[in-house]
Amino acid sequence: MIRPIMMRDLRRALGAGAALPVVFFLLVATLFPFAVGPDAQLLARTGCGVLWVASLLAALLPIDRLVAPDAESGVLDQLAARGISDEGIAAAKLVAHWLAFGPPLMLAALPGAALLDIGGVELGRLELGLALATPALAGLTLTVSALTAGLRGAAALGGLLVLPLAVPILIFGAATGNGEPGALKLLAAIALLITAGAPFAAGAALRALRD
């Protein structure tokens, strides 16, 4: 039951706008050196943090197309009438959204790191951090998508809801990038908590959407 839902979501995500967060991410990485100047040392020192902020903002872009279109078109009702649990639907959507968001973002971090003059070791830590953080970011985005589906200005409101919740990811993620001891473990812990909780939170939001 879960697999066809996941495949459908993945196909829809890849068909419409999966490249958008990646392009946005690279755009930020391109603009930043223009703004602060070409000082290689300054860029290398701030680059990791910039890429983390860019990842966070890129995660916001798909908020209005993860849940709202399915709620409007009756797809969620059809799934619920077949007795599929809301948590199951949310889990399928989470996996599909991460597949369309996480790996492309990690790939985009390669040219992004080159643009900001980030070295090999730091890049390795950034990629490791993103591998842990992107499922959590996907989970936050999905949950807030489900919470704001059907509201006007859902994308803007969604941003206001996601960003505060993503602060721990940003703090521990950026600290991981700077090689601070223990940060990786804390990042892994907070990411696991958010990722594991997301299907339940998003599932509850989907249930509330029906009333």
């Binding site: 078109s73 009756g74 797809v75 009702d77 059809q78 009438a81 077949r82 007795g83």
Partner: peptide, 15 residues
């Protein structure tokens, strides 16, 4: 028994 639901919305992917 299993249910076939037909509501107002088509629930068919437009594209």
């Amino acid at each position: 028994g299993r249910i076939a639901w037909m509501g107002e919305a088509a629930a068919l992917d437009a594209a």
